[in-house]
Design a protein around this nucleic acid. Structure first.
Length: 577
DNA sequence: GCCGTTTTCGGCCCGACTGTTTTCAGTCG
């Protein structure tokens, strides 16, 4: 059983223990064990084989034993028994707002409820309202929650969430009572998907701000309205929280609600170790009255970090992994910046399945002040995308050559192709065709259901082709829609590095592939990244914004991203490949 | 279940909001 399967099982054990009523700290131990595995830098196999797991903080004797058993046998009696003792339906109920493990347990034990259907039934029969700790309101809230589960339970692509957030931010910012306003939450951390929106406002007059927020266009439900916090739901399902705080607490609130939860825990532990208690309201000497304000004013998040002897940690890095260590050691990278992007490489025109002409794409790149634009239309096997035959490809090469010679655009065009990796690992065009191009993006567009071994050797074979320049969307995932195909990314990354190949960070908001979680280690090993919008029209070129976000989240600096290289350096790089 | 320069027990981040009950537990982030 591989690492990812084991992570899933540890997380499931945590959920099951919670539903059984185990202590929160035991539950947290399994959750944090899963998290530690997720972000493991070392090779998992050798750690297990050489008893190295026990030296990892957060993994103790019990977890080592369970992880090792799962790894070697693919089975764990403890897990099987636990799973058998908790009805499946209870796990689903956790998705209903207002229902946590304790309440679900009570409903299950007192009313024999073990599915959402039965839960609906007992609520309609008004049996839940009579349980201790419940009432009519809880009962109705559960019914609404069940009804809305499908529509509202979903996460949203960062790109879409950001569009909605920009509008709200702008509207609230019009109010004279709003002194400061920022996005927080996973949107600010630039996570690939976002559950809900969080806004932090500094104001001495919260009421008008709350009022405006809860009466915004498209608000269909106000789910909470207190003195400092309101929550609403928009039609379409997106939820948003607003917190209004006094100005002196703004940066504490902003930091807290930016999260992540794990990052906050690390920050609070650090504060405690230095004799302070940290919360969204501020920082106080440990043991002192927590309402007592500190003498010091904090005018930025940076000052909060500095107070705890830390360097500033950008929001994208606040995932509670190892950012505090890095910050303490003064090795937080200078992350790539949107302004450093000088072009991109994986873009389509209407010759294959794009919507705009070559000239329109070039013009759009020029208006973005890009120094270069790579055109990589589909190859012949991608029938569904009107892939180019050899003949049509040569016509395009010729057209690009003429445009470059004419000096019509300040942006230099590179001739490329997005060449299919056929199921056996061969490329869709012969080498004597590929050698006519400036560069070649190789991508998988077929036979997604191959085994991990097959898919891995298929892509490795493609990367070993001397004319392959970079690997496109390495896992084929579509966020919230389609899982990645099975592939051993560690082997792919190593192959890319040893063959001097680049791996794409596909910046299409649906892909964001290769995942940010893998970039830090890969880049440290020497892998170069290309942020590619995979544009199918001129507007899509803006997707590089999402790509840069994710690159930042992967701890990448400009020197590791070829989009920041000068035109001359790109030309040299492509000649070498 | 994990952890330890106050180490093998007794902690484990912190506070708002809700709905219940009448001082608080559960949920959520």
């Amino acid at each position: 059983m591989d690492k990812n399967d084991i992570i899933d099982i540890l997380e499931e054990i945590a959920v099951l223990l919670e539903l059984k009523g185990e202590g929160v700290f035991k539950v947290r131990a399994y959750q944090s064990g899963a998290r530690v595995l997720e972000t493991l830098e070392e090779d998992f196999k050798s750690l297990v084989d050489n008893n190295g797991l026990i030296n990892i903080s957060g993994i103790g004797k019990a977890l080592v034993e369970k992880i090792t058993t799962l790894y070697n046998t693919g089975k764990l009696d403890y897990y099987d028994q636990l799973k058998a003792s908790v009805p499946n339906g209870l796990i689903e109920m956790l998705d209903i707002p207002g229902l946590g493990a304790k309440k679900i347990k009570a409903i299950h034990e007192k009313l024999g409820v073990d599915s959402i259907d039965k839960l609906t039934e007992v609520c309609q029969k008004k049996l839940v309202a009579d349980l201790p700790g419940f009432g009519v309101k809880s009962q109705n809230k559960i019914l609404t929650g069940i009804k809305n589960r499908e529509a509202y339970g979903k996460r949203h692509l960062w790109w879409r969430a950001n569009k909605v957030a920009e509008i709200i931010l702008n509207e609230l910012n019009q109010l004279p009572e709003v002194e400061l306003i920022e996005n927080a939450g996973s949107l600010r951390r630039c996570l690939e998907t976002v559950g809900d929106l969080d806004f932090i406002v500094a104001s001495s007059k919260p009421e008008p701000v709350m009022k405006k927020f809860t009466s915004l266009d498209n608000v269909v439900e106000i789910t909470a309205k207190g003195e400092t916090k309101s929550s609403v739901r928009f039609d379409g399902g997106m939820q948003a929280d607003l917190r209004v705080v006094p100005k002196e607490q703004f940066y504490f609130a902003l930091h807290h609600f930016t999260g992540s939860k794990d990052h906050n825990i690390l920050m609070r532990q650090r504060a405690l170790s230095k004799g302070y208690s940290l919360s969204e309201w501020g920082i106080t000497a440990k043991g002192a009255d927590s309402k007592l304000p500190m003498d010091k004013q904090f005018n930025s998040e940076k000052e909060i970090f500095e107070f705890l002897d830390l360097n500033y940690i950008p929001p994208e890095l606040r995932e509670g992994i190892d950012e505090l260590d890095a910050s303490e050691k003064n090795v937080i990278p200078v992350l790539i910046n949107q302004k450093e992007i000088r072009g991109s490489f994986h873009n389509h025109t209407n010759v294959s399945d794009g919507k705009n002409t070559l000239d329109e794409m070039a013009e759009a790149a020029q208006s973005l002040r890009w120094d270069f634009l790579g055109i990589a239309d589909h190859s012949k096997s991608s029938f569904q995308a009107n892939g180019l035959s050899e003949e049509r490809l040569f016509q395009q090469i010729e057209k690009i050559r003429k445009i470059n010679q004419s000096g019509k655009y300040k942006t230099h065009l590179f001739s490329g192709v997005e060449c299919d990796i056929l199921p056996n690992g061969e490329l869709d065009f012969a080498d004597d065709i590929l050698k006519e191009l400036d560069y070649v993006v190789v991508s998988v567009h077929s036979a997604f259901s191959q085994s991990e071994d097959e898919m891995t050797s298929r892509v490795i074979r493609a990367l070993e082709n001397p004319y392959a320049t970079m690997l496109g969307h390495p896992t084929g995932r579509l966020l919230l829609r389609r899982e990645a195909y099975a592939i051993n990314l560690e082997k792919i990354i190593d192959t890319a590095i040893s063959n001097n190949k680049i791996i794409e960070l596909n910046a299409n908001p649906l892909r964001l592939d290769l995942d940010w979680r893998l970039w830090k280690k890969a880049a440290e090993k020497g892998l170069l990244c290309a942020i590619n919008p995979d544009a199918h029209n001129t507007k899509d070129l803006n997707y590089v914004i999402a790509g840069v976000n994710v690159a930042r989240k992967g701890w990448l600096e400009s020197s590791q991203i070829i989009n920041t290289f000068s035109l001359d350096n790109i030309k040299r790089l492509f000649l070498k490949n």
